[in-house]
């Protein structure tokens, strides 16, 4: 009897000890995330570095070290430089447009109006729709021959007739002209990221203490002054987080470009992920594909560190 009681006590003690041990619990809760990152991010990342320094192909992944040969080879192609420019050009332009529109949207949504929840559902749709499905939808909308946008423009005589504002041809060929195709891709990135950024900013706006806003009103602050001198400075840290998420997502995305243009016209809309896929998987040059993909990493790392550091510095307590 006594022995049993001792065992019970010890068991209760150890359970209690574990439940109260913050150090242990901290590690236990973090472990799944750490494992997830190690296995699904760390291992592929190390593998990509190994591949980029070897002569692996899709048929043979034996690692024969070739130094920086793959990097030298990819840097000789104009497609690589165009992809590099587009990757960051598209991402930065899309972020600027997204953050401006997201601020406007968040300010609008922070006020009360009829049908607000319905508006929120509609706004969130692009984010909740699978990316491939959304991109295919845009592919149809921007089709060279059957674009409904062109149909509407023709209906209002803005396109496809003598003297039409947008030209005589029946179609605008959104994805067949380099600059229009690049603009279309940026627009789809904005369409995709706007809901997330708007909701993050909305959360920031609703967290501003009401007494601050009341005080501003009592002091006679105008709408614009309240917006630029109170609201925006206060939500700046969270705005930077929205930009960070959106930028990283855009730089790493391949689905939108791959589905809309596959890098065309010519190679003017390629981004690093699409060029890496085409070279590495479709072309069989796995090592060069890995080398191209790795160019995204240092810039993303630097961007993440800079933005996080800035975000901490500007945090308002």
């Amino acid at each position: 009897m006594q022995d049993n009681a001792a065992v019970d006590t010890s068991s209760r003690f150890s359970t209690k000890y574990i439940a109260d041990n913050e150090k242990f619990l901290g590690w236990a809760f973090l472990l799944p995330a750490v494992l997830y990152i190690l296995l699904l991010v760390g291992v592929p990342f190390v593998l990509a570095i190994a591949f980029s320094l070897a002569d692996v192909t899709v048929g043979d992944t034996t690692l024969n070290f070739v130094g920086l040969q793959n990097f030298a080879r990819i840097m000789q192609t104009p497609e690589f430089w165009q992809s590099l420019r587009n990757t960051f050009g598209f991402a930065i332009t899309a972020q600027i447009i997204t953050i401006i529109l997201a601020n406007i949207l968040a300010v609008l949504l922070s006020s009360d109006f009829r049908g607000k929840w319905f508006a929120l559902v509609l706004i969130m749709l692009p984010w909740s729709t699978p990316i491939a499905l959304g991109a295919i939808g845009w592919l149809w909308l921007l089709d060279s021959k059957f674009s409904p946008i062109d149909w509407v423009l023709r209906y209002f005589s803005l396109l496809g007739g003598e003297g039409a504002l947008l030209g005589v041809p029946k179609n605008l060929y959104y994805l067949g002209k380099a600059q229009l195709a690049q603009a279309s891709i940026i627009m789809v990135y904005v369409w995709r990221m706007l809901p997330l950024s708007a909701v993050i900013l909305l959360a920031g706006l609703t967290s501003i203490p009401q007494d601050l806003l009341d005080q501003a009103e009592v002091d006679g602050s105008s709408f614009w002054r309240t917006l630029f001198q109170i609201k925006l400075p206060l939500i700046l840290p969270i705005m930077i987080i929205a930009i960070l998420f959106s930028f990283i997502y855009t730089v790493g995305d391949m689905a939108i470009v791959f589905i809309l243009t596959r890098g065309g016209p010519v190679y003017y809309t390629h981004v690093l992920p699409t060029w890496a896929y085409i070279k590495g998987i479709e072309g069989g040059a796995l090592a060069e594909g890995a080398a191209i993909a790795l160019f995204i990493f240092p810039v993303l790392l630097a961007a993440a560190i800079l933005i996080l550091r800035y975000s901490r510095r500007t945090e308002v307590t």
């Binding site: 592919l139 060279s144 021959k145 059957f146 041809p169 179609n171 060929y173 959104y174 994805l175 067949g176 002209k177 195709a181 243009t261 065309g264 016209p265 010519v266």
Partner: peptide, 20 residues
């Protein structure tokens, strides 16, 4: 026309079927 720069594997079929 410029549509050939945005050609997809379905463009042939769509254009022919539509008589375009």
């Amino acid at each position: 026309t410029e549509e050939v720069f945005a050609w997809t594997p379905a463009s042939n079929n769509q254009g022919l079927i539509a008589g375009e």
